[in-house]
Design a protein around this nucleic acid. Structure first.
Lengths: 166, 166
DNA sequence: ACCAAAAACTTGACGCTACAAGTATTCCGT
DNA sequence: ACGGAATACTTGTAGCGTCAAGTTTTTGGT
């Protein structure tokens, strides 16, 4: 049995949904254009470098890096190749598993992240966080957890900060 | 004066931010793959058709359509051209303003939206709305308004449902 | 020990978006 | 009523992501 209510969204659902898809359309452009202008990086490239910069030995296996950046392996492979061509990252075979590839941030890559971070953080603050109250920041975290549980049920992609254990 | 606190995010800010960018990376894929598989449309194409289907005479000027779909005119122009080639939309010069172009949904375009809508709505429910409480849906709307005010300050793009006047 | 299945990538091709540049009209200040 | 500026697109190109397919290595069952 399927009623009309299952086939469309009510006003409150529609209002939330329209805002969510608007954000999903607009946010990437805001992030990309600032980083591209000021650091010559896309947001995804910056994020890859930033994740590597926080890893042990600034090194991660491609699969682990893909998980932490919410990317497919194919996408990551292309991006890391381009970053390697620019000297920001280097790849080498993983000693423990010959199938795997490790990606390591180079000194130049580290410098690039360090140089880009302040401007990027300022941009995130001014376009996102500064518009929210402390309560809304917490609500957004909880809403995010609820959505990600369904967008990525296996958790293969999202490896996130968990402020308290969990 | 710039303190360290301005240059990085604290744990709660970082938790919210990481979830937001994870959603922004994952949601488009979830929407696109269902619509592409079941209806041969990208989410943006579907959204363009859906917006047209609700307009007077199923017709809108390109600029108005761009606003309502959060898109640049250049992007919309390419998409509408492709939709026109598939017979889902037709374009004709605007009588009142010779600079402008009107886009109108064809009968075939209407059929495509009607055919695609139920599956799409079910997908939105199962991947997004069903994971949220009623309170969270309201919170998401408010958070969305706060973010969009900063992502698109001029409001040139986002024309949204406003449940109460406002 | 063997072999099929799974895992971990890489690669090539294609489609979509952003950016830059170009055209045609309308608006507006004087 | 004239000319510069703004508006409303369109188009070409270059770059990034997805999808499908292929390679190599490991795992797990018998």
């Amino acid at each position: 049995m399927e009623s009309v209510d299952d086939v469309w969204l009510d006003d409150e659902e529609m209002a939330a949904w329209l805002r969510l898809i608007a954000i999903v359309e607009l946010l990437p452009g805001v992030l990309d254009s600032q980083l591209r202008r000021d650091a010559g990086l896309t947001h995804f490239e910056y994020f890859v470098l930033a994740v590597l910069s926080e890893a042990d030995d600034r090194t991660l296996r491609m699969t682990a890096l893909a998980h932490r950046t919410n990317a497919t392996l194919a996408r990551l492979s292309h991006v890391v190749r381009r970053l390697e061509e620019r000297g920001l990252v280097e790849r080498f075979p993983c000693p423990e598993d010959a199938r795997a590839t490790n990606a390591r941030l180079t000194a130049g890559g580290w410098d690039a992240v360090v140089a880009a971070a302040p401007g990027h953080v300022a941009n995130v603050r001014s376009h996102v966080l500064d518009g929210l109250t402390v309560d809304q920041v917490r609500q957004l975290t909880e809403i995010g957890d609820a959505l990600l549980a369904r967008l990525d049920p296996k958790g293969t992609m999202t490896a996130l900060y968990r402020p308290e254990g969990s």
